[in-house]
Each structure stands twice: as structure tokens, then as C-alpha cells.
Write a protein that binds this DNA or RNA. Structure first.
Lengths: 192, 192
DNA sequence: GGCAGCATGTAACCCGTTACATGATTAC
DNA sequence: GTAATCATGTAACGGGTTACATGCTGCC
């Protein structure tokens, strides 16, 4: 229920078209808020109707026209009001945890392969985050002084990095546990 | 789209009524999968129609009758099939990250109070997890030998503990960052 | 000739959330 | 008496997901 607010933040950081927003939701913002272009267009239209954003049609050569959106006064107010609301504990849906507990009632080896693949995906994501951190915030090509916006983007990215590191360590714990269970079952099966 | 599977796992761990399931989704399973009683009753009815679970009416004295559910063969098969499917990267929705980046366009002090409260909530959750771990798995009253089901429950709980510790450390980082920004703004406002 | 990228949309479906409803017992 | 717990549901709404649709440009 905060796609509107995610869009407001993104448009405040940098105004742009629905298409551009959709691409950002595949990248930077997408790391902590996913949305498809269908959702974005739908919500953007409603936000325009509510006066939260203002659209300006931009003709382009060699490309279709686009609508360039920027946040309007009421949108800024709505964002401020939302920022002052209490942060609710998020409702989690963690497939993997369900699968792990489900492994007690199935052969663990299939799950182990999935966990290994998942570990690989998260290593890649961590590498991607670290590359982004170096490029934008800490590396030699990063700006010497960061403004507030960049400082806050950086602390969010640090959260993503901490999350990936924690996840990788836990996945190794999970794999070791599954391996132990598998070995114990194998030892029981053929007799002593 | 895996509430069915979460219910299957929970019923395999221990059969019970819809009401009992709803209560588990407030506690142990609820730490990684939330569901309300309305959802559970709706899905349970569908699962019964599909032959995944079997219900047995139980008359009780002094309490309303209840339907006692247990997983049937097709349900076990459905769970096994799901466990063999690849683990998809989860689609995240992290309000707090959006709010933090939004703080660049607002006074950070209101958000700081929210983050402090949020930190408090997570400390409590961590304490709760640690108490549960001691009670069920590592403490003097825990069973000396854990079966597969308990081992897997434990590794999932360790994941929750790692997540809370990581979150607490990050929230402190967030607070420090917001404080720095606030101080810098205050220093600019009244002049040198 | 075909595929990827730019750009915007409609329609249908399912799931999750919220509100409402009932009725009995036990504890304060 | 009144609040909490046990126990099961219906109904309405809104948001997210998936599929479908269009059309032009630039590259291999």
C-alpha cells in the first residue's frame, strides 16, 4: 500500500516517465520495492488525478512520445504525512523457510540443490551491491562529498549489503544442516 | 501463493483445527508467513475439496465443535512437488527503506522517532526468539536429541535470530546517519 | 528478417485485508 | 456484567500478477 509513496520518492530524487520509473523498479528501488509497469501506469494515472504529480507531454524524435512526471505540492504533503506515520512491522512471506521445514517430510537432496542455486543468486546480488556502492559512494570515482539524498541512498544500500551477507551465512548453515540430516538418514537405511 | 504449502507443513508437523492453525500463524510459523483466520478457513476448505487434507468433526464439551484436519496422500505429493520447484527470489516490499530515502525531502526528526520505536520492537522480537531457542533447542529443558523436524525448525529459527541481529545493527547505522544529517542541517540554518 | 528496446496501456483473475456475524464458556 | 477465549464463517474491496495489445526504431 505504499507504491504511491515509493513513486513519490523516486520522482523527487529524479523526475521521469512511467517507463523510466518501471526501469528503476527493476534496479535501485527494485531492491526493496518491486512493481511492474502495469501497476506503475495505473497508480501514476490515479496520482495525476489526485494532483500528487504533474505530467508534461514530451515529443521525441525516433521514439514514442512520453509523459514526463514531477511531484506537485499535494504529493509532497502526502509523502510527509506518510513519513510521520508509525513504521508497522512488515508482514513476512518467506517461501524458503516453509520449504526448509517441509524438508522434514521429504528427501532433502532436491532442496539442497535449490538452496545451492539460491546461494549463488545471493552471492551475485551481493557482488552487484558492492560494485554499486564503490561506483556511487566509496570508490575513487564517487563524489568527494555526498549530499543528504546520497547519504540516505547509501545507508539503505548498506542495509541491502548487510542483508545479503547475513543471508549467505545462514544459507551455509542451512546446507550444513540438510547435509547432516541426509547423512544420518543414509546411515540408518542400509543397517549398521 | 504458498499458503497451502505452509498449511501442509504445519499440519504435517502437527494436525489440528483451522483455529489452531490460525494461532500458529500468530506465533511460530507466523514469523515467516502471516495469514489471518479468514484466509486459512478459505484455503482449508479448498484443500479439503482437492483431497489434500481430510477433516474429522470433533465434538467437544463446553466448547464449540471443531474440524480436525490432517494431511492426506495427495497433499503430501503436492508438497513434495513444490519442494522440488526452484526457489524464486522473493519480491520485497520494504516500507522502511522507502521512508529513509524519503527523509531527504522532509525533516528527519519524525522518522528518527519511528526508527527508534522500530528498533525497540525488533529487540523484543530478538529476545523472544532467543527465549524460544533456549526453551526448545539449546537450554537445559530442551530434549537431548533433536529429530529432523526439530533440527529444521531450529535452523529456521537461527535464520530469524540472524535477521533480527542484522536488522538491529543496521537500524543503529540508520539512526546515526539521520542524526548526522539533522546536525548538519541545524548548523547551516542559523548561519556561521 | 528478426529481436531488443522504448513507450503506453486494457482486462481478468486471484489473493490478502478489513469488516461483520454468531454463540458458547470461563475468568475477573 | 463484561471481557477474553474458543470456533467457524460470509462479504466487499483493493492491490498485485499475468496475459494481451500496439507501434516505431536501431542493430545484427
Amino acid at each position: 500500500m505504499a507504491l504511491e509513496h515509493a513513486i513519490l520518492v523516486s520522482l523527487l530524487e529524479k523526475p521521469g516517465s512511467g517507463y523510466e520509473l518501471a526501469r528503476r523498479f527493476d534496479r535501485s528501488i527494485g531492491y526493496f520495492w518491486t512493481a511492474t509497469h502495469q501497476q506503475i501506469y495505473r497508480v501514476l494515472k490515479r496520482m495525476e488525478g489526485d494532483g500528487w504529480v504533474e505530467a508534461r507531454e514530451v515529443a521525441q524524435q525516433g521514439r514514442p512520445d512520453k509523459k514526463h512526471y514531477a511531484v506537485a505540492g499535494p504529493g509532497r504533503d502526502a509523502l510527509a504525512a506518510w513519513l510521520h506515520e508509525p513504521i508497522e512491522p512488515e508482514s513476512v512471506r518467506h517461501d524458503l523457510a516453509v520449504k526448509i521445514r517441509g524438508a522434514a517430510f521429504d528427501d532433502p537432496s532436491a532442496l539442497m540443490r535449490q538452496v545451492e542455486r539460491y546461494h549463488q543468486l545471493h552471492s551475485e546480488r551481493l557482488a552487484h551491491y558492492l560494485a554499486g556502492e564503490s561506483r556511487d559512494f566509496t570508490g575513487p570515482d564517487a563524489p568527494a562529498h555526498l549530499d543528504d539524498m546520497q547519504e540516505l541512498q547509501h545507508v539503505v544500500l548498506r542495509g541491502g549489503i548487510a542483508y545479503e551477507r547475513m543471508t549467505l551465512a545462514w544459507l551455509e548453515d542451512v546446507l550444513a544442516t540438510l547435509r547432516r540430516i541426509q547423512a544420518a538418514r543414509a546411515a540408518e537405511r542400509p543397517g549398521p
